[in-house]
Computed example of a mutant assay.
Amino acid sequence: MSHRLFSRLSQLALLGAILAAPLPAAAQTKNLEWASGSPGGAWFTQTTGVSTLVMEAIPDTSIRVVPGGGKDNPTRIQAGLSQIGMGIDFLSAAAFKGEEPYKQKHDKLRTLGSTGVDVYYMVYVPVEEKRSLAEILADPKLTIGVTAPATSEHLTLQRALEFYGNSFAKIREAGGKVVISSYGELIQGFNDNQFNVLWTAGEIPSGLASQIVDGRRKVKFASFPEELQKNLSEKYGYSRGVIKAGTFPELQSADVSVSSMGNIYLVSSDLPEDFVYGMTKAIMSNRSRLANIYQAMGRYDPALAAKVQPVPLHPGAEKAFREAGFVK
């Protein structure tokens, strides 16, 4: 073998070893992807704002916010497509354990704890609607709008329909309609009478509710029947919530009992401890700015956030919480 050929092969072998070697922590966190929610929704606003806080605190880090949903974000993180994501407590727990609707354990899921935001299912119907939500959901000729399959709203609607012996397929076969779209298009379609029920989830206060109140159609909230709440709670781990009377005066005349859920920050276990430590500290130290990003985020409390662990805390987050005295 000639000296030149041997030298060239040695260079290639060295290059291969460099490429195969694990990236240093700084390189691993240079360009990250944060899976949020549907475009125009609350999660998109929240992730855009919080990612900016993180990039300010950790130099040379670029975070790209992409559409996602409470159902799909755990799988995006498990597959390495996204390194950070917004999550929902009961769905993240199901993903970590490999329980329905997930087919395998998502063992890379870690958390920074709660975002401080609780989310309530908000179902809008015309003010002239006299039927209960149970009767509405059992109707095969139902016309309803909901967000994309990646979202918790979509999954929860499927579960609610199934509980009452209905489904998307049955509705379409009977001449009903299921409109699946983004929040903006759903609101417009609802106001234009393209469908009669709008199935959403939102925080208090809710920007989406405000948009609907400002629309052309007079609508109200529909309460979740007790038997539906019990099924969602016992079978899937949903929480129960109440939209207190007076919260949205134009949409309710009394308390509205609904199913609810908690939001959490999800991260991959592959993210370096020092980065997640810095990310957690950035969120904690900027508590006063969170409400300016999204009003409901003003309720973030690191002492409570650290206790919300449907999946394990990332070691970097645990270190930040312990250092601040919130984890012993």
Rank of each mutant, 00 (worst) to 15 (best):
S2L: 02
H3I: 10
R4W: 12
F6M: 00
R8M: 14
L9T: 06
L15G: 02
L15K: 13
I18P: 00
L19S: 06
A20R: 11
P22F: 11
A27N: 04
N31V: 06
G37Y: 05
A42E: 14
W43I: 10
T48F: 08
V50I: 15
V50P: 09
T52D: 11
P59D: 14
D60W: 03
T61I: 14
V66N: 04
V66Q: 03
G69Q: 12
I77A: 12
Q78W: 06
L81I: 15
M86D: 13
S92L: 03
S92C: 07
D107P: 09
L109H: 01
G113L: 07
G113W: 02
V119K: 02
Y120E: 00
Y124M: 09
P126M: 15
R131I: 01
R131A: 07
R131V: 03
R131F: 03
L133N: 01
A134W: 06
D139C: 00
K141E: 04
L142R: 00
T143G: 05
T143D: 08
V146H: 02
T147P: 10
T147Q: 14
A148W: 08
A150T: 13
E153D: 05
L155I: 06
L157H: 09
L157G: 10
Y164L: 09
Y164R: 07
Y164P: 11
S167Q: 08
S167N: 09
K170E: 15
G175Y: 12
G175I: 13
V179H: 03
S181W: 00
G184E: 00
I187Q: 04
Q188I: 08
Q188G: 00
G189H: 11
G189M: 15
F190Q: 11
D192E: 11
A201S: 14
G202K: 07
E203D: 15
S223W: 00
S223L: 00
P225W: 02
L228A: 02
N231A: 12
N231Y: 15
S239D: 11
K244A: 14
A245L: 01
G246K: 10
F248N: 05
S260I: 03
N263G: 10
L266Q: 06
V267R: 10
L271N: 13
P272F: 06
E273I: 14
M279Y: 13
A282L: 11
I283L: 14
M284Y: 04
N286T: 07
I293P: 08
Y294G: 01
Q295H: 05
A296S: 13
V311F: 08
V311T: 11
L313K: 01
P315K: 05
P315I: 08
G316I: 01
A317F: 10
A317G: 05
E318D: 07
F326G: 09
K328F: 00
